[in-house]
């Protein structure tokens, strides 16, 4: 491996890294919003909306992101809906992530045992209080592991963006290999940057999970 080459490539990787992180974070935030809204609609059986979101979750959970991006980026403009590559990436990640987050949050809401609702109403809480003070905190702790797994999954999925020519880490590596044929250096930097991006989240996630489990079941 040539250190000179590594140093000369570094700036391009750094800017690609920040682009990847930026799109990833905005996409994940969007995924959260869609997921929470959709999970609530499904959980409370909101008229029509719950059916629409059920269909949406099934559709996006059962198709790959690459195909979704191709459809949004190359297919939709034919109907007059043209959007930039960056917006397409955010939208694709948000829609894919929204369906996964929705499932995570919904199963958390469903896992809260019925006796909790009954006890809350026995204590004289109204439905709003029951939901916000009892159900929601418990449901959230129950869905933390799934949410953490989804965040890591979504950040990994950003690697697909190179297919719609966003200058992310994957695209940079592919580009540099094509230009200068320094395969080893390019791949080494690619792997290092993904480790820098994902290892901290993976570690924080497992600490968070342990804390949540401790709160729910006590030690071990």
């Amino acid at each position: 491996m040539d250190t000179q080459v590594l140093i000369s490539y570094l700036p391009r990787y750094v800017s690609a890294f920040f682009l990847t992180v930026r799109i990833g974070l905005i996409g994940i935030a969007l995924a959260f919003l869609i997921g929470i809204f959709s999970a609530f609609c499904i959980h409370f059986k909101v008229y029509i909306l719950s059916q629409v979101f059920k269909g949406y979750v099934e559709l996006f959970r059962n198709t790959p992101l690459l195909v979704q991006l191709f459809f949004i980026y190359f297919g939709l403009p034919k109907l007059g809906l043209s959007i930039s590559a960056e917006l397409c990436g955010i939208l694709g990640l948000g829609l894919l992530g929204g369906s996964y987050m929705s499932e995570a949050i919904r199963s958390g809401l469903e896992a809260v045992s019925k006796s909790q609702t009954e006890s809350a109403s026995a204590l004289g809480m109204n439905r709003g209080q029951t939901f916000f003070y009892v159900i929601l905190p418990e449901a959230f702790t129950l869905s933390v592991p799934a949410i953490v797994a989804n965040v890591i999954f979504l950040l990994k999925e950003t690697s697909v963006f190179s297919a719609i020519s966003l200058m992310d880490l994957m695209f940079t590596a592919k580009d540099l290999i094509g230009l200068y044929y320094n395969t080893t250096e390019s791949l080494f930097l690619l792997v290092s940057f993904y480790i820098v991006m994902l290892l901290p989240i993976s570690i924080i996630g497992s600490i968070l999970e342990k804390k949540v489990r401790y709160k729910m079941f006590g030690a071990n």
Partner: peptide, 20 residues
């Protein structure tokens, strides 16, 4: 394996291993 995107793994094996 879990941290690396599958696409990166694909590139490592397809391009990296070929060269190395």
């Amino acid at each position: 394996i879990r941290i690396m995107p599958q696409m990166v793994l694909l590139f490592i094996v397809y391009f990296g291993a070929t060269k190395a």
